[in-house]
Amino acid sequence: MKRLGVFLQEYGVIVALVALFGVNLLERGTEFLQPEILRNMVSQNAYTGIIAIGMTLVIMTGGIDLSVGSLVALCGAVGIIVLNGVGANEASTTLAIALAGCASLAVGTVAGFLNGFTIAYGRVAPFIVTLAGLAAFRSLALVLGNGGEIRSTVESYKEIGFGGIPIPGLQTAVGDPLIFYWHAILFLLIACFASFLLNRTAFGRHVIAVGANERAAHYSAVNTRRVKVFVYTLTGALTGIAAFTLSAKQNSIGTGSAGLYYELDAIAAVVIGGTSLRGGRGRIWGTVVGVVLLTLITATMTTYRVNTNWQGVVRGAVILIAVLLQRGARAND
């Protein structure tokens, strides 16, 4: 029993993933194994996924970042404004798209740095600082978009959102080559990078140390403030990347709606993945699986035609069960 407990603690999220997958196979048979569906499973929530990677590190330091959803709207808005400005000239669309990406990344990085700096040096609780960000970044985006959506005038921008690398030998249902989208590729690459950072570098050990016991880390000559500034800055930068790919896919940005609830989805993925909200313990791969699990929950409800009014209940229950499994196992330690 105890060994089962330990197993669930470690791999509960994978058990949940496999179970949900099986439930879909039961209803839809091998049709559910279409490459297109599997591709969508990784790519659909990749925007929140990219953000959730940064969120994992933030939560591991014992912090939280509630501002990421609003920051998506702000980064996207600035990106599209730059895109439209530079891309007005037909010849410079490639440059315009590149600059839009840079602008989005820059805004995210600066905003993340401001969050981190205020938290680390202003000694304000992360919840409060990023709650302020949640309000302020959305508001700035609304100002830029005059309350509505900002449309891109560069038609080829959407190719960033729909483009990617064709997977050799695989096709969509209508016979086109199956494309693995850029944002999904970025999601996986960033996850690998963060995993390396966390497990193989001194910085990773510092993140864990700060989250486990900040005072002890401080006495052990870990620059706890710098670690904090870094994780929030990184999360901001990743949010900028997510905003760039998201606005490309929509070829516009809805300043009131883009990134809405992304902070909650990202936190949910991190927690489902087995990272402790109390800090000090976490894993990147768990977050990646958590993101895929969230996508799979949505797909499952579509499969079973769950009335959309009930979907929140199902989603909440799955999140709770995934966490309880891990929590219950931990109590047995």
Partner: peptide
Amino acid sequence: KEPSEQITDLENLQSQG
């Protein structure tokens, strides 16, 4: 609730044929 969720819905519907 918002556009990116709707895009996900639409992609899932497409994959259901």
